[in-house]
Simulated assay, not measured.
Amino acid sequence: MDAEDDEGFREFVRVRFEPLRALAYVTCGDWQAAEDAVSGALAKLYLRWNKVSTPEAYARTMVIRAAIGEKRRPWRRERSAGDALPEVPVRDRSGDVDERLRLHAALRHVAPRQRAVLVLRFLEGLSVEETAEVLGCRTGTVKSQSSRGLDTLRAVLAAEDITLREEERDHVLSRP
Rank of each mutant, 00 (worst) to 15 (best):
D5W: 00
D6Y: 05
E7Y: 06
E7R: 15
F9C: 01
V13F: 05
R14S: 13
V15L: 13
F17G: 00
L20R: 02
R21M: 08
L23W: 07
Y25N: 06
V26Q: 14
A33C: 01
E35S: 10
D36H: 03
D36K: 03
A37V: 03
A37C: 02
V38G: 08
K44E: 13
K44R: 14
W49Q: 00
S53M: 05
T54L: 08
A57W: 02
Y58S: 07
R60S: 12
T61P: 04
I64T: 09
I68Y: 11
E70Q: 13
R72L: 10
W75Q: 13
W75A: 05
R79K: 12
S80V: 04
V88E: 08
P89M: 03
S94M: 04
D96A: 11
D96V: 00
L103H: 07
P112R: 01
E124V: 06
L126E: 11
E130S: 11
G136W: 08
C137K: 08
R138N: 03
R138V: 01
T139E: 15
S146R: 15
S146A: 14
S146C: 15
D151L: 12
T152C: 13
T152S: 10
T152W: 07
V156A: 06
A158I: 04
I162A: 05
T163D: 13
R165P: 06
R165D: 15
E167I: 12
R169Y: 14
H171Y: 09
H171I: 01
H171V: 01
V172W: 11
V172S: 10
P176K: 02
P176D: 07
P176T: 02
